[in-house]
Design a protein around this nucleic acid. Structure first.
Lengths: 362, 362
DNA sequence: GTTAGCACTCTTTTGATTTGAGTGCTAACA
DNA sequence: TGTTAGCACTCAAATCAAAAGAGTGCTAAC
């Protein structure tokens, strides 16, 4: 069976209507509210075909039709491929009305130095604006370049190691050491580290280099190794990427996400965050090819189990050359994809611009 | 009407039974499962009195009785006043069985330097252990003493200010400055700051002192003022106290907390955190008198609106001399107060010990 | 002061019935 | 051959009535 133009139109109509109402849509509705001028009986026949093709289904006999994951997929792909321009146009107007852009600018201006504040606010704004749940990942530190390292003696046997990455992300680590150092030694260690490590990414700091530096440090070799390990651990580390979420309670607006203990499972995933990593790192690599950096997971497509009834849309922003973070929306499968896509594009666009600008200035 | 011994016993029995079952408890149950040896009819008479006194009520005619807030209050006060010893004994045994203490020790040993990690883990453990929601506040930075300040020139026009508080809490702040500084000036500024500010709490850094320092700095006076402001802002600041929560989804285990949109409101409060501040700062002052540092809010007593159907128990831990943080449990009014009190005591005890030990070492 | 007994109340459960939306199929039509 | 009107059928959801069950309050007797 073919998916001819008419079927496609009917499918579109079914999906659109379902997105708006959340109710299964029947043949009569389609017959009335489209310009196809077909009787409900004809529509019924077509819908039966569409069901056979796997794009829609009935929750039970004598109910209207609901899109399947495949149906949504077709719909979204269509949207992503063709009509982006007009959509984003249409939505930009919407946003201006809602003063979203102004909000965003405010957030951005507030404190560019505190990226995590910016990102948190951004997530909050997105959640409020879309009525879905949002999440943001910090730029991946381990791809970022080291800009500056400083060691300070704090107490007996304790060094404070301050690490600054490109883009002025600051991290601190306390290192316990066995020997005490005088000011002079500390100074030369600082020099050594900054000379050797600055400009490198985590991945570029390898074993050979560490050994080499340890050699150079003579009697402080062991200490140097210790510190390098600490630095690597701090940047790279087990803690993984940081993720902020916002608007978790929006899921209560969609019964299909909150009934039957779904709410608990979902919120639990959001609280623990580990699982979100899969959504927000997964494909950072692929960016080169996928020019938009936008990814849509529909229902069963998501790698996260508790989100099998959700759709997830993620977008990538660039913090530094080659250093990416992601921002995402979690909502019901019947989410307003147009709005979400537009919102994400707008936000990532703004983030890109802001970080770039910030860099050019500093 | 008097609250004689017998009435008190019956009230106790009602509450205890309700805590266990969550169901309204009838006269027959009490008659059977206590050593009072009274018929259900007698119990009924007594219960009618207790209802008149405001300690219990019926959700509807022909239902058993449920404790009122006042009833719980009596019960909890009784517990807090008298029998603590035996209780904590009893519970300690319980905990040992569950290897809770071992867990706690592990968490503590892990990384004493990263208090926030310790506290987060602690919150998680508490939530898992009690099946309620837990929250922890970081020690209040603005009561803490400054230990060390360091300025570093990062970019043109940008200083990185690293602030270390007593107990090795590290904060970073980026300061934009209008003039550029050479290494020498930076060094003397660093000296100036450390000389003047170290050992002070936020509250002790006042306007006079700032002015005085600005004077001393000569041509860099404006800059000094700028930096002091930034330091004060960073420590004190708008961000308020940091709070971690854990086990939010435990509320789904108690219908009275999750039905009718209660879940949404509660989780929203937990997500936004601002409101929790009231629970976790409020009475830090009173510690001196209240030796246990434990506070119980029952139902309407809580200052947080979305928690009017909850009970909240908080306990205070001491991070540094005079620097406190709080740790709390949020659950249904019919929570297992014994268990919660014991768990909180055990945790704060351990925190106190750990931080003290850490300090003695370092 | 305590208790047995009983009528009464109110929620919860169960089952039966009705209603309504929407379908699939058939037969007629252009 | 594609379209449509018409009708029987299905199934979820709403409505209603009846029954069951838990527990009370009150009265009268011990």
């Amino acid at each position: 069976m073919e998916l001819d133009e008419r079927k496609k139109k009917i499918l579109q109509a079914v999906i659109k209507n379902y997105l708006e109402t959340g109710e299964p849509v029947g043949s009569r509705t389609i017959s009335k509210y489209t310009d196809l001028n077909l009787s409900s009986a004809t529509i019924r026949n077509e819908m039966a075909d569409l069901e056979e093709l796997g794009y829609i289904f009935q929750p039970h006999t004598s109910a209207g039709r609901i899109p399947t994951d495949a149906g949504y997929r077709l719909y979204v792909d269509d949207m992503l491929s063709g009509k982006q321009e007009e959509l984003s146009q249409k939505n930009r107007k919407l946003e201006e009305q809602e003063e979203t852009l102004k909000n965003m600018q405010e957030i951005m201006d507030k404190r560019v130095d505190r990226i995590e504040e910016v990102l948190k606010d951004m997530a909050k704004m997105l959640a409020n604006n879309t009525n879905y749940t949002s999440m943001v990942s910090m730029p991946q530190a381990n791809k970022n370049r080291l800009k500056f390292v400083q060691l300070t003696q704090l107490d007996e046997g304790k060094l404070l190691c301050t690490i600054v990455l490109e883009g002025n992300i600051v991290k601190n680590e306390m290192i316990k050491i066995s020997q005490n150092l005088d000011q002079q030694v500390l100074l030369s260690l600082n020099l050594l580290f900054n000379n050797k490590l600055n400009g490198l990414t985590l991945q570029e700091i390898n074993f050979d280099m560490a050994a080499n530096m340890a050699d150079q440090a003579g009697e402080y070799g062991a200490l140097v190794t210790e510190i390098i390990n600490a630095v690597v651990a701090t940047i790279g580390s087990a803690d993984g990427i940081e993720i902020f979420t916002s608007g978790a309670t929006n899921i209560f607006k969609y019964p299909e996400l909150s009934d039957n203990g779904n709410a608990s499972r979902l919120i639990s995933t959001l609280e623990e965050k580990e699982k979100l990593t899969e959504l927000l790192t997964d494909s950072l690599e692929e960016i080169g090819e996928n020019t938009t950096g936008i990814q849509v997971y529909i229902g069963e497509e998501t790698p996260v189990n508790s989100m099998k009834d959700c759709s997830v849309v993620t977008a990538t922003y660039e913090f530094e050359k080659g250093v990416y973070g992601k921002i995402g929306i979690i909502g019901p499968k019947r989410m307003d994809y147009e709005k979400v896509l537009a919102a994400l594009k707008s936000v990532t666009g703004n983030l890109d611009k802001t970080f770039k600008k910030e860099k050019d200035e500093g």
